[in-house]
Every structure is written in structure tokens, then in C-alpha cells.
Simulated assay, not measured.
Amino acid sequence: MSLIEHQVPFSIGESVSGSVPDPDAARHFVPYKMMEDFIEQNSDIELIAHIFEAFPDSRRFYVNVPPSAETYEIEKMDFGKNADFTQDDLAPSELRLLMYKIQTKILKCAADRNNADFIDIHESLVRADGFLRDAFTQHDPTHANQDFGDAMLDVILTQVEATR
């Protein structure tokens, strides 16, 4: 989420302090709540409800998506032949992490509305700042690898067993 800022760089106001980005930063300001509403309206929240409705007697779990990796080189990524992205088009780390936190909040609320247990990413899989550990990346900023999947499967099975 928010990997590329092509074409208009932006910042999100902080929800707690209500802060506005530095006007000299040459970034457009988007209020936190406006971004939260936009992400919710453009997510697959309804799909979650439909899946759960299809299995009314099942135990419900929603596994959060992994955060992005912080560092990567855009030149190593495949955006297709017509992509015109450069390293300068990448969203700042702080913005990507904030948008991930907004997305996680929305998905947790959706799980709660559907009486599902929300399984978040285990703290051992992310760095202290919240980004995915390099050992769990698929050598691109948005996809986790098999080791991540194996570790999350252990987390899922542990939580499922704990709720029996």
C-alpha cells in the first residue's frame, strides 16, 4: 500500500496530534480520516463478509497481510515494460508504514464486525519499527516469502488451538 507516489507526493496528518506536514516539504496534505475513509472504501471488506457468510457455522479467523519491507531498489522490481517509475517516486517509509497501520485498523474492524478472530503479524517477523524483516521478504517490497508463510502458519495454528 502506497508503494509509489507517482505523481503527487502527499503526507497524512497524524491522528493523535492532528499535525500537518511541514509546508516546506512540497507534499500535499491529506487528513488522516480522509485517507482512512478512502482506504476503507477501496478495500475488499465486503469480500470478507461474503466469505464468512458462505460458511455460517465455521470458526472465523482473519489473518492480517504482512507489512512492506522498508528498503529495496526499484530497478530490481518488475513494473512492466511501460512503467516509468524511478526511485524518487517511492513513498517515504513513514508514509508507507502509516498507511499499513490504517489498513490494519480497517481490517481488524472488519474482522470484529464479522465475529472473526484477527490474527496479526507476529512481532518476531517484523522489525522494531514495524517493517517486515529482510529475512522474510520475497526480494521486493510487498511480498513475503515461504519462511514468512511457515512462521505465520505456526502463529495461526497456535491461535486456533488456543480458541478451541
Rank of each mutant, 00 (worst) to 15 (best):
D134V: 14
P31Q: 06
I45V: 03
D84P: 13
F131Q: 08
F118I: 02
V160R: 08
F136H: 10
I119S: 01
F136I: 09
A111N: 03
S15V: 04
F10I: 07
R27Q: 02
F79W: 07
V126A: 02
Y100A: 04
L95P: 04
D147A: 14
F79E: 09
L98N: 06
I106C: 00
S124H: 12
R96T: 11
I74Y: 08
A69R: 14
V8N: 04
N145I: 04
D24Y: 14
Q7K: 11
G130T: 04
R133E: 11
D57L: 13
N64A: 15
A116H: 03
D129H: 09
H143N: 00
S17I: 01
L97V: 10
S17Q: 00
F55G: 13
L3D: 09
D22L: 04
A128F: 11
F131P: 07
Y72E: 03
R60C: 12
N115Y: 03
D24S: 14
K76T: 11
A135P: 12
Q7L: 09
N115R: 05
S15Y: 03
E36Q: 09
K108C: 07
L132Y: 02
I39L: 05
Y62P: 15
G13N: 03
K33N: 09
V16E: 01
D84G: 15
I121P: 04
N82P: 11
A128T: 12
I51A: 10
G149W: 13
P67E: 05
R27C: 00
N42T: 06
H28R: 01
D120H: 03
A144K: 07
P92H: 15
V63A: 04
I12W: 12
P21A: 01
P67Q: 04
S43R: 08
Y32F: 03
E40L: 07
L157H: 05
I74E: 06
S2D: 14
F79A: 08
F38Q: 06
